[in-house]
Amino acid sequence: MPARPLSPHLSVYKMSRYSLVTSILNRFAGVALSAGLLLLVYWLMSVAAGAGTQARAAQLLSLPVMKLVYGTCIAAFCYHFVAGIRHLVWDTGRGLERSQSQRSAYLVVAVSIALTLLLAYCAFVLKGHAS
């Protein structure tokens, strides 16, 4: 490894906690959703393989531990969705002032928690899809 500073230059920024947390959470959420893609494609393949295969896959997909996986995917999706919109707004050059970005950080967290609760309620309680 070369003996010079390498990207990401975490140490050269003076960052407050909210910007660090919202940034790394977005990355964690993105990676979690990449893993979730495996699940989506597995499910699509099981549907395409026919009723018998899908029924067997459904046994695996309805294990109790999968509720935790779906919950994580829902939370990751909601956070990545809302935080991603914040990034797209930044890309237009808006909202970059410190006070604005602090406000939007709290807004992103609040909206994504609300969205997560709503989606989890729909998926687990109303539909019982994931049970």
Binding site: L38, V41, L44, V47
Partner: peptide
């Protein structure tokens, strides 16, 4: 993943 997903959807 991309190929498998597209294949599965098309197959159905």
């Amino acid at each position: 993943l991309a190929a498998a997903g597209v294949f599965a959807v098309l197959k159905v």
